[in-house]
Write a protein that binds this DNA or RNA. Structure first.
Length: 505
RNA sequence: GCUCGUAUAGUGUAGUGGCCCAUCAUGAAGGACUCUCAUUCCUUCGACCCGGGUUCAAAUCCCGGUACGAGCACCA
């Protein structure tokens, strides 16, 4: 090897020079077949509750692609189930608002499936007329057997006119839920059992389970299933690219078969794997809904819940969520991530703007003894003089110290003086800083009031009481409590810790 | 069971046959700066699932195994 190297050095030294390393890929991978200005993307959450952490991925990825290609981003409500996953009326508005907050702009288009039933009916009829769909009157169990045995169900051979008659019957309310369903004719021999003559529309009892939107209510009893509704709508909206979870891979295959029947071109599709968060495990919208109704949680923005509104109320910035999801990209791997990663992004988003504030937990009172200047001036932000100063006037002698710091005996009151602690006395030993005194945060009693810091820990909300520095930050401001962490101002006396601490093992 | 998918440091991620004794972030440990246990900066730690094959050359291509995940709903 060394010999070869020396030969090369003499004969062709340029071969030994290191070539420039390829730059690391930045941002999302390019979409295939994407033309600037011609890309149409959509994200379709079920409005059966407000958005949660996982939904942020769909929003961030799709809207980032929208921006990359100067395309169109559609927010679509797939609200076609009134019984198993009934929509929540308030969620429609809230989701649009949350999506706007997260992506920094309103969706280019908002589509509500329950407004567009006529389109789905038309396409169902077209399907029956052209013989690539049929009305199946088998029970779910009966059909399941056909699917497994790869045998055609008797309804499959009905001629279009008979199917149309049955379809009219479905619309008129002749059948009850489960009595009739419209199927897409694929092939019962297909390798993947999920694709064999899949159901496209079914009957729902909207008298017993009305749609929560008053303009829809009990108007319709025949409803499209996701695979059909979504496929037709994607075509009508001219969607060019779909990015979605890989649990929907079979959905793509079903829909591609439908597109072939209609003679449409299916959008380019990308998938991501499942994401779990260490600290949260599994949460489903319907489970959260139950737990809120039963009183286990205070509401959708309960800080223990992984909803977007809860995260937002805890002071997680849209930018941090965006960075977090972009960093994960769109791999199909199933992953489990710690919240620490999100918090690291949030710290970056928040620190430079966060005013500093003192909060003394489990405050112990001390009398200040000794000579000292009357005023203490502390910066609002150590790196930004232009953010101003906090001035504390020490006309009274009482100061607050954290219970945990009291044990240290000799401490440096941050930005002020070294003191010795005896009983309830804090005797000033030096105004100048002496080495080796641990620096602690503190407050003069005249500039502090009783306050509460809320922290989510082990799925509990801890209320930490203490003395909070007087301030006039508006509710919603993210401050940094010195030596504690970032917190969001709830109201004058109450703060919420942004990044909960984890107990050391 | 059938079908489909994925496997790179503790956690994520880059890498599409030679730029790779493998990138970046996060994490952990140490340090500098700092009158915060913050921010910023520096250093260190640590990985190509296993076994075959193709090739002059494999993290990368092929086959097999293993592990994990998803779908097989008249839910989305």
């Amino acid at each position: 090897m060394d010999h070869l190297r020396s030969i090369l050095e003499n004969e062709a030294p340029h071969l030994l020079e290191k070539r420039e390393t390829k730059p690391r890929k930045e941002g999302l991978t390019e979409l295939t077949d994407a033309t600037q200005g011609k890309v149409v993307l959509r994200f379709a959450p079920n409005p059966n509750g407000p958005l949660s952490f996982g939904h942020a991925r769909g929003l961030v990825i799709n809207s980032t692609y929208r921006n990359m290609y100067d395309g169109v981003f559609i927010l679509r409500f797939d609200d076609t189930d009134t019984k198993v996953k009934p929509p929540m009326l308030e969620a429609y508005e809230q989701i649009v608002e949350e999506a706007t907050w997260l992506t920094g702009r309103a969706p280019d288009r908002v589509i509500i499936a329950s407004d567009r039933m006529d389109h789905y009916y038309q396409h169902a009829e077209q399907m029956l007329e052209n013989g690539f769909g049929y009305v199946c009157r088998c029970s779910a169990e009966e059909f399941k057997e056909h699917r497994q045995a790869k045998t055609n169900c008797p309804c499959r051979d009905q001629i279009p006119s008979d199917n149309l008659t049955l379809w009219k019957g479905m619309l008129k309310g002749t059948y009850k839920p489960g009595d009739a369903v419209v199927r897409v004719k694929t092939d019962m021999e297909l390798k993947n059992p999920a694709l064999r003559d899949w159901p496209a529309l079914r009957i729902q009892d909207t008298k017993a389970h009305p749609h929560p939107r008053p303009e829809v209510g009990s108007t319709y009893t025949v409803w499209p299933l996701l695979d059909f509704q979504s496929a037709v709508e994607d075509h009508l909206q001219g969607v060019t690219h779909i990015v979605r979870g890989k649990d929907l891979m079979d959905s793509t295959r079903k829909q591609t078969l439908l597109y072939e029947h209609f003679g449409w071109k299916y959008p380019e599709t990308l998938y991501w794997g499942r994401v779990k968060v260490h600290e949260w495990g599994g949460f489903s919208t319907s489970q959260m809904r139950k737990d809120i109704e039963s009183g286990l949680y205070d509401g959708w923005n309960d800080p223990r819940l992984p909803t977007l509104s809860a995260l937002r109320d805890r002071g997680i910035q849209a930018k941090a969520l965006e960075q977090f999801w972009l960093e994960l990209g769109i791999t199909q791997k199933d992953i489990s991530v710690p919240l620490a990663t999100l918090y690291a992004h949030n710290t970056k988003a928040v620190d430079d703007k966060a005013p500093r504030l003192s909060f003394v937990r489990d405050a112990a009172a001390f009398n200040l003894e000794g000579e000292h200047p009357l005023d203490v001036k502390v910066p609002v932000h150590p790196n930004h003089d232009d953010m101003g100063w906090r001035t504390w006037t020490l006309n009274e002698g009482t100061i607050w110290l954290e219970a945990d710091d009291v044990a240290k005996m000799d401490v440096r009151l941050k930005e002020f003086a070294d003191v010795e602690l005896h009983d309830n006395e804090a005797r000033i030993t030096s105004i100048e800083r002496q080495d080796s005194h641990p620096i602690v945060h503190w407050l003069p009693a005249s500039h502090a009031s009783e306050g509460i810091l809320l922290e989510t820990k082990n799925n509990q909300i801890q209320r930490i009481s203490g003395q909070l520095e007087h301030h006039n930050h508006k509710a919603g401001t993210i401050v940094q409590l010195e030596r504690i962490g970032y917190a969001r101002v709830m109201d004058d006396g109450c703060l919420m810790l942004c990044h909960e601490t984890t107990d050391e093992p």
